[in-house]
Simulated scan of single mutants.
Amino acid sequence: MNHAEMSAIIARGDGFIAALDQSGGSTPKALRGYGVGDDEWEGDDEMFARIHEMRSRIISSPAFSGEKVIGAILFAKTMDGEVQGKPTPQALRDKGIVPFIKIDKGLKDEANGVQLMKPICDLDALLERAKKLGVFGTKERSVIHSADALGIAAIVSQQFEVGRQVISHGMMPILEPEYSLKADDRAGGEKLLKSEILTQLDRLPEGDQVMLKLTIPAEANHYRELVDHPKVLKVVALSGGYSREDACRELAKNDGMIASFSRALLEELRARMEDTEFDTALGTAIEEIRCASVGD
């Protein structure tokens, strides 16, 4: 698949994007959820090896195919690794799945109700390496905790600043200003968020596009204006701590948004499952999330 073909797959949105990008801070929790205890690995190398085993098993599963999973977001170590003897991005493309890479390096302390991204050192070098491996785009996460106008303006501005750097390398950025589900002012804050995103979209040069990864809004179809915007390739939803059942129910209320779930995708998978049981559980999760995404 070339860049134009991958762009077309994402634009059609006939499925969802799997988030397989747990990083250093979230990896131990992800492994525990997968049934791998902290006493089963020692040090970062073993930890990342165990999480790569999980991701490889998912990607290798016959249930994980481009018919329902149109994209997958990878952690850098996963991108640089192999699945069944192939570089991971190639293994995905061979299945008709568009590869993305997580580029953010964690969050700053909260200020003005938000957590901005820490500086992303050596981003240009990472983007060059990813593009050579056939990666289509990137994902960058920051978090909104309250409806502070200055904070939300700052977080959106930073997302677009990094996004423009990604675009300069001929890649597609997924901008992720996540709004915490724990916030009690989310409905009002999401109005500020949409307004700031629209302002920044207007500043993008003609021909440039971004993707958006957003918390499923408190008000159904609140982001429809973004879904239909010519400078937005696709709007995808994060599960944000929802169970898969709840995430799928809420997502289905929003026309044009598709899923980009992590925990909601992986919640029933366990390391000690036999392959048939594993593939069945993964297939069930994929079908439920696909249906919520495309409206079946």
Rank of each mutant, 00 (worst) to 15 (best):
M1Y: 12
M1S: 14
H3E: 15
A4P: 11
S7C: 09
I10L: 13
D14I: 12
A18Y: 14
L20T: 10
Q22L: 03
Q22A: 12
S23P: 15
G24V: 10
T27M: 08
A30R: 14
Y34C: 09
G37P: 14
W41T: 14
D44L: 08
E46I: 08
F48N: 11
F48Y: 13
A49L: 08
A49H: 14
A49G: 09
H52R: 12
R57S: 03
S60K: 02
S65M: 02
S65R: 06
E67M: 00
I70G: 07
A72L: 00
K77W: 00
K86I: 04
P87R: 12
T88D: 03
T88V: 11
P89G: 06
G96A: 00
I97C: 04
I97L: 05
V98W: 00
K102L: 09
A111K: 12
V114F: 11
Q115Y: 02
L116R: 10
A125S: 11
L127K: 05
R129E: 14
A130H: 05
K131C: 08
K132C: 10
L133V: 11
F136M: 08
T138R: 00
S142G: 15
V143K: 10
A147G: 04
G151H: 00
A154S: 13
V162R: 05
R164W: 06
V166K: 06
I167K: 02
I167Q: 04
H169T: 07
M172K: 09
P173H: 01
P177A: 08
E178C: 09
S180H: 03
E190F: 00
K191Q: 13
K194R: 11
E196C: 10
I197R: 01
L198R: 00
Q200G: 14
Q200S: 15
L201A: 10
D202H: 15
G207L: 01
D208E: 13
D208N: 15
K213H: 09
L214A: 01
T215P: 13
T215Q: 01
I216E: 01
P217Y: 04
P217T: 15
A220I: 02
H222P: 01
R224H: 11
D228Y: 01
D228T: 10
V232M: 05
L233M: 08
K234G: 07
K234W: 10
V235P: 00
L238D: 01
G240V: 06
A247V: 06
K253P: 03
I258F: 04
A264H: 10
L265Y: 15
L266S: 08
E267F: 15
E268T: 13
E268L: 01
L269G: 07
L269T: 12
D279F: 07
D279Y: 05
D279T: 11
A281L: 09
A281N: 07
T284A: 07
I289L: 03
A292V: 02
S293M: 02
G295E: 06
G295Q: 02
